[in-house]
């Protein structure tokens, strides 16, 4: 039994709920497409040239330090990097370009999933999926359990382990404040190759399909992020298989919250069935004890009664025998006395 998307998102938006999974529409057959008109970004890896202008712009927009490795330094691509607390996005090189084909890069950051597992697993509901698309984080309630970081399949979240006072979970925010003002995310504006396009997700899907249709030799016929794990706001196009870009190719379309939290629907069952069941067990046990005790007492009583009667019978039997013996002894004495009298006569 899994929650519908609307029920899930609805319960997220509402916040505090009952102990049960809080799915108002659990088991409904309706399909929630997500908030209409929400934004997304299209990352066309065939256009990315690895200039890392997006990293510089992201650092600037979020008031982070500039990337440690300057933009012209190609050695940075020798290792595959991930996002950190001071670099919300990084560009990695996944193919060297030694064989005459151009090198292939991909930018990675929080994917702003349609149904984010980070939001589903947060026990203080610190994450919110906004109607505009970005996922927001509330450091005011976060307790630092880091379950969200465990859950994220894209390894997009980072934690301030060196901060003892107010450590936060940090990641790309899709420049939510800028979006609200009608601006584009910093990376989208910065990219000179047009590898990042910002717009409404439904429009970007059509743009992506159109590009695939126009240039079938250039693209793999798949838009990554359209459906994977329920779909993401970041959509990807590539000319090589997505698994070679370190992406989860071929995963289910079912969202991670549906897979990972549907188990909670068993909780109400346990809470409702166990008490009656266990009380019944206790009652059976108690009854068994009571019956055992009663049987014991009955057996004892019976034994006592039997014992008394037996005693009586034995006594009367013994008295009888004693009487008989006595009579016999008297008889013998009388006969003896008579015999003595007969022999001697009165002398």
């Amino acid at each position: 039994m899994s929650m519908s998307r609307r029920g899930f998102v609805g319960s997220l938006a509402v916040g505090a709920g009952a102990l049960s999974s809080g799915a108002a529409d659990a088991g409904t057959i309706e399909h929630f497409e997500g908030y209409p008109g929400r934004y997304g970004l299209l990352h066309d890896t065939t256009l990315c040239v690895g200039c890392r202008s997006c990293e510089v712009a992201c650092a600037k927009v979020n008031a982070l330090p500039e990337p440690k490795q300057p933009v012209g330094d190609l050695d940075v691509f020798e290792t595959v990097r991930r996002s950190t607390t001071t670099a919300f996005t990084v560009v990695n090189r996944y193919q060297d370009g030694d064989d005459g084909n151009p090198p292939i890069y991909r930018k990675l950051q929080c994917m702003h999933c349609n149904e984010p597992c980070c939001a589903a697993v947060c026990l203080v509901h610190a994450f919110t999926k906004t109607p505009e698309g970005p996922i927001l984080y509330d450091p005011e309630v976060c307790i630092g359990c880091r379950y969200c970081i465990m859950a994220c399949p894209y390894y997009a979240l980072s934690y301030e382990y060196d901060n003892p006072i107010d450590p936060q979970v940090l990641r790309c925010t899709m420049c939510y404040p800028r979006i609200k003002e009608g601006l584009n995310p910093g990376c989208a504006d910065a990219c000179p190759a047009g590898a990042i396009t910002f717009g409404r997700r439904e429009d970007l899907l059509m743009v992506a399909r159109d590009r695939i249709r126009k240039f079938p030799d250039r693209y793999i016929n798949h838009v990554f992020g359209e459906y994977e794990f329920g779909g993401t706001s970041w959509l990807m196009l590539a000319g090589i298989p997505f698994r070679e870009l370190d992406l989860n190719e071929g995963v289910t379309h079912e969202s991670l919250p549906a897979i990972g939290t549907s188990y909670l629907s068993v909780v109400p069952l346990i809470v409702t069935i166990y008490p009656g069941l266990l009380a019944a067990f206790y009652a059976f046990t108690k009854r068994k004890d009571t019956l055992a005790k009663r049987e014991l007492e009955a057996a004892l009583a019976e034994a006592r009664v039997l014992g008394e009667e037996e005693m009586k019978a034995k006594l009367s039997h013994a008295a009888e025998r004693a009487k008989k013996d006595k009579e016999k002894a008297v008889e013998v004495a009388v006969r003896k006395a008579l015999a003595e009298q007969g022999e001697g006569g009165p002398s």
Partner: peptide
């Protein structure tokens, strides 16, 4: 282990995330 251990009671007193298995565990 918690990043902010003084906030341990938050799921019950400040804001609950009832979709989370961890919420159920902590409760």
């Amino acid at each position: 282990d918690l990043g902010r251990p003084w906030r341990l009671p938050y799921p019950f007193i400040k804001q609950a995330g009832p979709t989370s298995p961890l919420f159920e565990v902590s409760l």
